[in-house]
Design a binder for these strands. Structure first.
Length: 502
DNA sequence: AAACCTTTGAAGTGT
DNA sequence: ACACTTCAAAGGTTT
């Protein structure tokens, strides 16, 4: 893990990874602001096409693009240049939107629940949200706010196309419910297959189903089944989507909270209790108890272990219980069907808690829709290439936001799933074809890199072994610049990233 | 249907 | 300690 001991004590931040290309592109950006969207689009498209073709012929090229450091113009090929410029233009002009308009939750400084027991925002949270979004009138939750959210969730093209997608049609009185607006980055992720329903917090509008507002916004009747839902418990915040259960089919106590579609949510386990996203209250309790330090589950105060709603505290974790509800979310919630101990056991193992998103993933989540809308590209691989470039084109401050978000998200994830480890998600048993193939391919790529890649740190002699890129700043930290490679050392003040081969 | 592609970063495993 | 690997999102494409 990259470590920048810039202090702070929290090693979760990856400030060292913040890369700025200002030294190279600012002028271009300004100039390019006058460029037309059509040209940008054409550039990107053609560049992508050319690029992919080029990549097929030479992996070195793709690798070169991955490396932020090579600043030498001679090192760039025309294709790449045009693409980068196009991306910059978009960043600087067309897409000049608030880089990170919506991460309200995660940015709540103390990570405690912004909710008051009655479900409304705490003053602190309101203050915070108002700071983050001055335009928002963050007041204690109300039906009005829910309606506003309901409106906001409508997948209007404006959400997708416009440079500022996170407008709130009914922009007032926002409760936290409203943070599943388009392109809002969730604090934590739902498990993948957990539920076909929309999470309470979602990244992008493409996950919203028109005319099918999320359950928590609907008062009482499930749209699919027509089965009435229990009213929204006042003490449970919809902050986190909770249940992977199917609304309406199962009278899950949190059925009203069940998201509608798509976006993964951290799962809830019915049996053992690696809980998905807990209620705000439980989150709050959890965080409060875990805030200062990450207590192991056994240290969680007993009174937090079970919410008044009967929802187990996330800290009560059956170690190594995996969450994967690919079978049936419905059945996973149907306690009556869980009489079979074996089934329960299986379900426990199936549960899958996803990794928290890193900064770049958060960025991608937010920006993907924009890129897709602008470029009319749909292939994720191409989109991701653009996003990768844009990521590098972001200013330090802009990236910092995402790093901070990611850090918070990891913290939250850690607190919600104290026993979880990324290892849990390793397909340990399935290290079969795919991974082998991948490994082989990467090995081949690595070999090609050795052959073709020049030193990314400007015009220095080629680096022979590029298989292990390390950024000096990340690797040694700011206080050990004497250990940095020469190019990095001399370039750092200009914020030029570099790669060092260990 | 499953894996791949493509990106960066975090965290795991292996040496 | 360091290098390498896996997974996170996403959705079209390939196998």
């Amino acid at each position: 893990m990259p470590q920048l001991n810039g202090g702070g004590g929290d090693d979760l931040g990856a400030n060292d990874e913040m890369i700025s290309f200002k030294d190279e592109g600012e002028q271009e950006e300004k100039i390019s602001e006058n460029s037309s969207a059509e040209r940008d689009l054409a550039d990107v498209k053609s560049s992508l096409v050319n690029e992919s073709e080029t990549n097929q012929n030479s992996s070195s090229d793709s690798e070169a693009e991955r490396r932020p450091a090579p600043r030498s113009e001679t090192f760039r090929d025309k294709t790449r240049e045009s693409l980068e410029e196009a991306a910059k233009r978009q960043d600087g002009g067309l897409f000049k939107s608030p880089p990170y308009p919506g991460y309200p939750f995660i940015m709540i400084p103390d990570l405690t629940s912004p909710y008051l027991p009655n479900g409304s925002l705490s003053p602190t949270a309101r203050t915070y949200l108002q700071m983050k979004w001055p335009l928002l009138d963050v007041q204690p939750g109300s039906l009005q706010s829910r309606q506003a959210l309901k409106d906001a969730r409508s997948p209007s093209p404006a959400h997708i196309v416009g440079p500022f997608r996170w407008e709130f049609p009914g922009q007032s009185d926002l409760s936290l419910h409203q943070f599943h607006l388009s392109n809002k980055v969730p604090v934590v992720q739902h498990p993948h297959h957990v539920h076909p329903l929309t999470p309470l917090i979602t990244y992008s509008n493409e996950h919203f189903t028109p005319g099918n507002p999320p359950p928590h916004l609907q008062t009482d009747v499930d749209p699919k089944t027509g089965i009435p839902r229990p009213p929204h418990p006042p003490d449970i915040s919809p902050y986190y989507p909770l249940s992977p259960g199917t609304v309406g089919q199962i009278p899950h106590p949190l059925g009203w909270l069940v998201p509608q579609q798509g976006q993964p949510v951290y799962p809830i386990t019915t049996g053992g209790f690696r809980h998905p996203y807990p209620t705000a209250l439980t989150v709050n309790a959890s965080m409060s108890s875990l805030l200062s330090s990450r207590f192991p589950p056994h240290m969680v105060p007993p009174h937090h272990s079970l919410h008044t709603t009967g929802i187990p505290h996330p800290a009560i974790v059956t170690p190594n219980v995996k969450q994967e509800s690919s079978h049936s979310d419905i059945s996973s919630l149907d306690s009556s069907k869980q009489s079979d101990g074996k089934k329960v056991e299986e379900k426990k193992k199936e549960v899958h808690i996803k990794k928290p998103l890193n900064a770049f993933m958060l960025y991608m989540k937010e920006m993907r829709a924009k890129v897709v809308a602008e470029c009319t590209l749909k292939e994720s691989a191409a989109i991701n290439q653009i996003l990768g470039r844009r990521w590098h084109a972001l200013s330090r401050e802009e990236q910092a936001k995402y790093y901070e978000l990611a850090r918070k998200e990891r913290q939250l994830h850690m607190q919600l799933y104290p026993g979880w480890s990324a290892r849990d998600n390793y397909a340990a048993n399935q290290q079969g074809k795919r991974k082998k193939r991948k490994r082989e391919k990467q090995q081949a790529e690595s070999n090609e890199r050795r052959e073709y890649f020049p030193n990314p740190c400007l015009s220095l002699p080629p680096i022979t072994d590029l298989s292990a890129p390390k950024k000096c700043r990340a690797r040694f930290g700011l206080d050990q610049q004497n250990n940095w490679c020469g190019p990095c050392r001399c370039k750092y003040p200009k914020e030029v990233s570099c790669l060092v081969r260990a």
